[in-house]
Write a protein that binds this DNA or RNA. Sequence first.
DNA 1: GCCGGCTGATTACAGATGTAGTCAGAAAGC
DNA 2: GCTTTCTGACTACATCTGTAATCAGCCGGC
Lengths: 121, 121
Amino acid sequence: MERIGDAEYAVMEVLWDEAPLTAAEVAGRAPRDRGWSIRTVKTMLSRLTAKGVLSYEEDGRRYFYRPAVARDDYVAQESGRLLDRMFGGRLTPLVAHLARRDRLSDRDIEEIEALLKALKS
Amino acid sequence: MERIGDAEYAVMEVLWDEAPLTAAEVAGRAPRDRGWSIRTVKTMLSRLTAKGVLSYEEDGRRYFYRPAVARDDYVAQESGRLLDRMFGGRLTPLVAHLARRDRLSDRDIEEIEALLKALKS
DNA sequence: GCCGGCTGATTACAGATGTAGTCAGAAAGC
DNA sequence: GCTTTCTGACTACATCTGTAATCAGCCGGC
């Protein structure tokens, strides 16, 4: 799967949340703080389509865009990449790292323990 | 901290592993499969220095390069970024995601449980 | 029937990145 | 001493990314 940039990712988020949408609808649902012009959004949509992560159906002369890759698959790829690159592909060092850096709340710990317990049964 | 690319990251890995090193030494220790010329490595070193993630001491007309940011800090930034972007900044969804995608071995589960248990005490 | 506005396609352009060549000067071999 | 070799500095250039303008054509209002 091709890599996508930060801004492109924001466009994907919109469509993962709701699809299919027209370019104008995507622009309307994009994060306000990006301050994108409709042109910018259209460029993103074209590029993402070229990269094969979006597809569309024609509706007259408009397109209805929708994701061609599941959010879960994309997330799996990116988190796998980070894990491979920085933690030798293993999750434990990541958790240890986050714990060291105080990114783990007590609630996190409880939740993850419950999750792991469920996995073992 | 400025962002660095994939190739730049590979250079940092060399120096996080061993420092200080000259440009030639970094080139010699870089992953063979990158097929880098010494020029390429030197460009990386300059850019990383400009970005402030490397520093150097002069040794005659050569430089000895060394990391100016700890690997741990860099890793914290990048894993935080991924967590924020894809999992709302929370670790639990990441673990749940990896579990769903079979990236969690029994050994991982045991290790993480032990780690969490230690954290609580 | 013409005009303003909307559509996707194409083009523009600056900054980042990957990869490397050129240059001026020092050092080292001979 | 002269040539080869090595150094960092600077330059080059294609691709990717973020951001947007231009273009050609269709559609809906009047």
